[in-house]
Design a protein around this nucleic acid. Structure first.
Lengths: 123, 123
DNA sequence: TTGGATGCAAACGCTTTGCATAATT
DNA sequence: AATTATGCAAAGCGTTTGCATCCAA
């Protein structure tokens, strides 16, 4: 288990409390409430290590800056609400999609992003 | 129809010849073969206008800088080679994927990105 | 001749890194 | 005491913008 410094703890705590993916800037703002002297470089360094440690997962969406969320298990995809800009996990998957690639291409992974209205914004 | 300057023509020609989405840097490199004095600022300015004119389409992939491709008709997706970092269009689509979203969510669109090795890098 | 297009360089925003200091073991 | 973490500032990197110049109608 990696050593738990004060700043690393504040960063993790902020992400757990937010319960949604946060950008580095958002992490800084949230975690500074717990640890005011925290700097942005420390956020980047700790986030990188937390991802390597498997405690955080990087959430990359097209055209959006990377966000980070507490790691969960299982293959899943994302739904991006165009109104509230929140991102939700969606379960299920249409399959490995290897058939879509041209001949000679080797598919190792895939990413699917759904766009539309989340439950609240559709109401 | 928008006026066709030499640089704008070179940029479009490079994209047509490449037949795959190119990043601004790639566009610069390709188009400079046709027009050596071309600068990166001109690439950005022309690409922005070409997108507004509907001649180019911006291709946003997770965690990657935006790329641009010649506007075509028809729904398609992309393949991102993890070795050479090039992006290719792939035809076909598993469907509207509306069934993946949770109840109450309204799916308007989707994006699929395949990752792996392109034909050359797989060889 | 006049307005738009271009190249260059500086500005910008986000991320990373160098380095001296502080914290942790 | 030795090692690792941190803050600050500077450096990178891709993109945008200011400005003088060039080109085209």
């Amino acid at each position: 288990m990696a050593r738990q410094t004060q700043q690393r703890a504040a960063i993790l705590k902020a992400l757990v409390a937010a319960d949604r993916p946060l950008s580095p800037g958002e992490i800084l703002a949230h975690a500074q409430r717990l640890s005011p002297r925290l700097g942005i470089a420390t956020v980047y360094r700790n986030v990188r290590r937390l991802v390597l440690d498997g405690e955080l997962v990087e959430v990359q969406l097209p055209g959006a800056p990377p966000r980070y969320e507490v790691a969960r298990k299982g293959h899943h995809h994302h739904f991006h609400c165009r109104i509230c800009d929140r991102v939700f996990e969606v379960e299920g998957c249409p399959g490995p999609l290897t058939g879509l690639a041209p001949d000679g291409f080797f598919v190792e992974a895939h990413e699917i992003v759904l766009y539309g209205l989340c439950r609240e914004c559709a109401a």
